[in-house]
């Protein structure tokens, strides 16, 4: 973990309520895809944990959805500096991916898949990505994944773009060696059941500190109590205990 000051380079909407922000600062503690940063915002007591979409040198990219007071405020910033804790969470382990890993992102679970896809493609893997949304106006980053060299499948619940239905409707006909997922809990639960291989899934919880001190985000797993912010947010398929 590192606490440092980042300067905002850009902050622009990708859809009606999803924003992409790029920042410049010390990214040296971000070592894996699937980690998150925790951002201090003026007037808010707690920091806001946001997943890392990409890191390139000293440029950090985050993509976030406006869901409350904190993210609404974040969406208004176009310049200035932010106090950010980086290098939080365990992130995805690419070692067990096999030759043809499948990456599945749902809604704002899509961003962490970007850096993961980049890393896996860099390792010479054949990467396929399923991006799940409710409707076509919510779709983002389709072309960016394609440009990395990934095979991209989009699903929308209403069928307005790509495959009609849920991400689980897209995985049925695919063969893959391992899977990585991030998205809403019902999606993760469905994938846990529908997936043919082992995999890693990233979870969300309301956090206090984001670095393991307060025990606010603990969940029970088959291998003991785990802090979503510290031992997580990425869990192995085999250790997840659904409640």
């Amino acid at each position: 973990m590192k606490k440092s000051i980042f300067s905002i380079i850009s902050n622009e909407p990708l859809t009606s309520n999803v924003y992409k922000m790029t920042l410049r600062g010390d990214c040296s503690d971000i070592t894996r895809a699937g980690q998150f940063v925790n951002i201090a915002l003026d007037g808010m007591y707690l920091r806001r944990p946001i997943s890392v979409c990409d890191v390139e040198g000293d440029v950090l990219t985050i993509i976030y959805k406006v869901v409350g007071k904190g993210t609404r405020y974040l969406s208004t910033l176009t310049e200035g500096e932010l106090d950010i804790l980086t290098g939080l969470g365990n992130g995805y382990d690419t070692t067990p991916s096999g030759d043809a890993p499948l990456l599945i992102g749902g809604g704002v679970g899509v961003p962490p898949m970007y850096n993961l896809a980049k890393r896996l493609i860099g390792e010479g893997k054949r990467v396929r990505v399923i991006l799940g949304f409710n409707t076509s106006s919510e779709v983002f980053y389709r072309e960016q994944f394609a440009r990395l060299g990934a095979e991209v499948y989009v699903t929308t619940v209403d069928g307005s773009e790509g495959i009609r239905g849920f991400v689980t409707d897209a995985i049925r006909d695919l063969e893959y060696t391992y899977f990585y997922a991030c998205g809403p809990e019902p999606m993760l639960k469905a994938l846990h059941k529908a997936s043919a291989t082992s995999g890693q899934l990233s979870f969300e919880e309301r956090m206090g500190c984001g670095f393991g001190a307060c025990m606010g985000c603990t969940c029970e797993t088959l291998t003991g109590y785990k802090r979503i912010c510290k031992e997580g947010p990425v869990m192995l398929k085999e250790e997840i205990l659904w409640n």
Binding site: Y45, L46, G208, C214, M215, G216, T218
Partner: peptide, 20 residues
């Protein structure tokens, strides 16, 4: 002790609630 079920953190103006 595992503690209480989550969510067990809620932000407030000038502080937070915890029910760890």
């Amino acid at each position: 002790r595992y503690g209480n079920p989550t969510p067990r953190i809620a932000e407030c103006t000038g502080g937070l609630l915890n029910a760890v």
